[in-house]
Design a protein around this nucleic acid. Structure first.
Length: 297
RNA sequence: GCCGCGGUAGCUCAGGUAGUUAGAGCACAGCUCUGAAAAAGCUGGGGUGGUCAGUGCAAGUCUGACUCGCGGCA
């Protein structure tokens, strides 16, 4: 039993999936997806989920674990991912944590401890009615420490903080992390911005050809609400708006392109802070880095 | 050729009766991240106001000429 773990992260359309297959094969590994949208069943084309064929026999975990009608959260992800990683390691194989959802990756590799108060949608709805200023005032009174660090204009975060304070009758605990439980190597796939945009463009065309719009139609038919589809963002959001005749087809593709570019930038902003990441361009560089940084792998 | 409308930030446009450092949305740049994270938010840089002249203490705002674009009539 080892505690080795290789993480492959990077912005959308950077080529993580391809790389992960090659590396998993080479190092006798299994893939654990770290993608907040690929956890949903029947969301395949729009999320760029790897196909059975593309897996080339390499086992994949944390794909299709829940219904798009249900809400899935980091905490659930963390639990399932840790379990999968553990099982892979038990077989003396190397788990490859692959994806672009920084928050999920952080939860797993740094073991951040998230307050164990589950979302109370009734309470949230009630708080939703209040103004941002009112909510901030409330938090300031109930938990001055959290009020100091929180973004005072972010309603969603304010409500979550209040949810914890109200239910536990205690301040939001300081962010804690578990002791590192993995010997981790983090690879970041980097592409220059122009190339990334081009990759997003090509990918979008390909997905449309593959029937991405029909996929969204099907989801709607199976009972996923428009609101929910819009919540998923990017392709799902703008295709849903198009199908409701709220935007034209051209607006739809333009928005998906732009929003994907923005998303990629946001992802990079998140990743940039983590100095443990080895930034690489391709498979060759990845191999070099692994040999040098973690010869034992 | 005549009539009308318009020319303000990279784009689309706001800017009663002329009066402090000209605004918004989008775009662009940077950032945040404690059970929604493809989510939810924050900060910032940008404009010789089509050109020239005139009237005012003061002109994006009024007047004239010119110029470019759009629509209509001939």
């Amino acid at each position: 039993m080892t505690n080795k773990l290789i993480v492959i992260l990077g912005p959308t359309a950077s080529g993580k999936t391809d790389l992960s297959i090659k590396l998993a094969k080479k190092f006798d590994g299994e893939v654990v997806s770290a993608d907040s949208r690929q956890v949903y069943k029947r969301m395949d084309i729009g999320t760029g989920k790897i196909t059975k064929k593309e897996m080339e026999g390499m086992p994949h975990h944390l794909l299709d674990v829940t219904s798009p009608k249900r809400k899935f959260t980091v905490t659930q992800y963390k639990k399932l991912a840790l379990k999968a990683i553990n099982e892979i390691q038990k077989k003396s194989k190397i788990p490859f944590l692959v994806g672009g959802t920084g928050f999920y990756i952080q939860a797993v590799i740094d073991g951040i401890i998230i307050p164990s108060i589950k979302p109370d949608w009734k309470l949230r709805k009630k708080l939703e009615k209040k103004s941002i200023q009112e909510l901030f005032k409330m938090l300031k009174k109930l938990d001055p420490r959290r009020a100091k660090s929180i973004e005072s204009k972010n309603k969603r975060r304010l409500i979550r903080a209040l949810e914890i304070v109200i239910k536990t009758k205690k301040p939001v605990p300081l962010l804690k992390k578990n002791k590192p439980q993995f010997e981790v190597l983090i690879l970041g796939v980097k592409k220059d911005p122009e190339e990334l945009k081009e990759r997003i463009r090509k990918r979008l065309l390909k997905r449309l050809k593959q029937g991405m719009i029909a996929e969204v139609k099907k989801l709607r038919k199976s009972g996923v609400s428009w609101k929910r589809l819009e919540e998923f963002g990017l392709e799902y959001k703008y295709i849903a708006l198009y199908l409701q005749n709220k935007i034209t087809k051209k607006e739809m593709t333009d928005r998906i392109q732009k929003e994907s570019e923005h998303f990629a930038k946001r992802q990079m902003t998140w990743f940039k802070r983590d100095k443990r990441i080895y930034w690489i361009k391709d498979y060759k560089e990845a191999i070099k880095v692994i040999k040098k940084a973690k010869p034992s792998f």
